[in-house]
Structures are given as C-alpha cells and as structure tokens.
Amino acid sequence: MRKVALIGAGGIGSVHAGCYPDIANAELVAVLDIRPDAASQLAEMHGVPAYSDAQTMFAEVEFDTVDICTPTPTHIEYIKMAAAAGKSICCEKPFCLTAEQCREAISVCNKANVTLFVGHVLRWFPEFRRAKELIAGGSIGEAAVVRTSRASGHPKGANDWFCDYEQSGGVVLDLGIHDLDWLLWTFGPAERVYARGLGTSEQGKSDYALATIRFKKGVIAHVESSWAAPTGFTVKFEVAGDKGLIEFVDKDVITYAEAHWKADQTDVTSNESSPVKESPYLLELRSFYNALESGTPVEVTPKEAMSAVALALAINESIRTGLPVKP
C-alpha cells in the first residue's frame, strides 16, 4: 500500500484526492497547499492532516509517494524535494515550464532512483484510447491529416496563475499539451511546427492558438487550443487516413441529460454529460500505482512528457517569431 502526500489542493488536486478511495494499493495520508485554508478544506474532506509548509510535512508524515498538483512553475522544486527524500512522484501535466526544468527533473529522479510519472490523463480517456487503437490497427490505413480541438473559457486558478504566462505558459502549454501528448503518442515525433496565437496574458482576456504540426512520418496535424470559449468546454478530433476516417465530437456522445425547473417553468437549468464507470483520472492514477507496485515502467515516461513540453514550447516560439520551429 502506497502512502500518498498530495501537494496542491486546487482543481486537479481535488479530483485526484477524490480518486484515492477507489485505488486499492494507495491511500491519501496528507494534503499540502501553501494556502492553509485550501489545504485544510480538502484534507478535512478526506480525513487526513493538512499542511501549508512542505518541510514540516516531509518531517512529520510517513509517506512514500507525492502527487504533485500545483501550478506548473513549482513542479521542479517539489520534484527535487521529493526525489531527495526518495519518494515516488506523480506529477500533473504539463511536466515543467521549460525543457531545462524537465531535464533537471529527469536527472534528479534518475540519480535518486525514484519513479517519475507525468499525468497526461488524455491517454485514459476512452475515446482517445480507442482512436489510437483503431489507427494502430490499420482501420483508416495510413494517417494523413489530423485535427484536434480543445476549447474552454479562461480557467480560474489561485491568484489567477493561469493568466500569468511566466507561470502557465499560456493556452498551448497548459491546455493544448493534452492533445500534443496524444499526437506524439499516436504519430511519433514532430518535424516542425508553425503557429499563430494571441499570446495574451492579461487577466480575463482570451487566449487562442492555432498550430500546424508536421510529423516526421509526414502526417499533418492542426491543433486548436482555446481559452476563448466561455460558452462551455468542448473537445473534437478527426484523423483522416488513406483508407478511412475517424471523427469524435463530444457533443455527439451525450448519454445523459438532466434538467430542473420550478412548477411554473422558471429557473430552468439543464446539464448534459457522457458519464463513464471509472473516470480517466482514476484509471491514470491506478496505472501509476500498479506500475509502482509491480516495478514495471510507467505508462507516461518523463521523456515523453518532456517531448510534449518541447512541442508546446516550439509552438509558443513560432507564435513569438512568426517562423516555423523544429521542436
């Protein structure tokens, strides 16, 4: 049984915390957040102690694994701290803010001989997993041209850290990276990228980027990353090959709708969803803890996670320079 200290009690940290009761070989033993209120709130919900100081938690709590769900620029420090203490590490995507940080993280984990896993959860979304299986199985022949789209409003985080490009890397590094990892996983390494984007960092302003990626095997992909869709979160993708085509639109797979109103038909609310028995976040974490238990390689390697960061940074560089960039 792994004993897990969760670091970061924000949006994704809360989701991870909620998964642990359903993971047979791991249990949550502490929650750390530099915001004491946030730490206490989540810790209380799960009946574990809360910490706002990392040193204190590392000194007082008996644990063997950290689950890092903090803002991106802090990943590297927590990884170094955990590696130095010999803890296994699950780190939320994006891996780190820069390629140098990714390299340093890999190096310290190798030296300390600790396992490092990066949570590219898209790999456990059944639609993306199934699509990769179909492509690998030859259902559409050789892939030719791919489109992915991921769109939402501007995310709200502690101190609006998503709005600060020094902290979040913008919509491509924070949001688009989901699709970038899936594309690299499915089509192999990228040859070059070209992109345009708003690159805005002002609070509340939209960010939006359209990138074209040419993969080494020839495949061309168009990647839309949007924080300019406050009307709702949407995901779409399609892969056209020389023998067929796969397409997915989240709005097409709604399997549940629930509406409420008062008897006079005022105060109408409605929600549509596509529930699954086990959430991709749960499957992702299970995969990590199963790998730890069995000593097998983690399903997302740090090198792969670094490639996704490198691709996102290449897209950001292309947006800045107006030129194609080799990742």
């Binding site: 345009r196 984007g197 359209l210 074209t212 067929g244």
Partner: peptide, 23 residues
C-alpha cells in the same frame, strides 16, 4: 492535404484546412 495559416493586414490570423480528406 493542406493546412494553411493566413495573416491579414489588420492583424487577424486564420487557418484553413483545404484538404480532400473526406474519404
């Protein structure tokens, strides 16, 4: 297969997928 990125003189950017990708 073709994916274009267009820059307009008013600063707007656009992409255009002009592929014959409907099998």
């Amino acid at each position: 297969v073709g994916i274009l990125t267009l820059g307009f003189d008013n600063g707007v950017f656009a992409t255009l997928d002009s592929s014959w990708s409907r099998v």
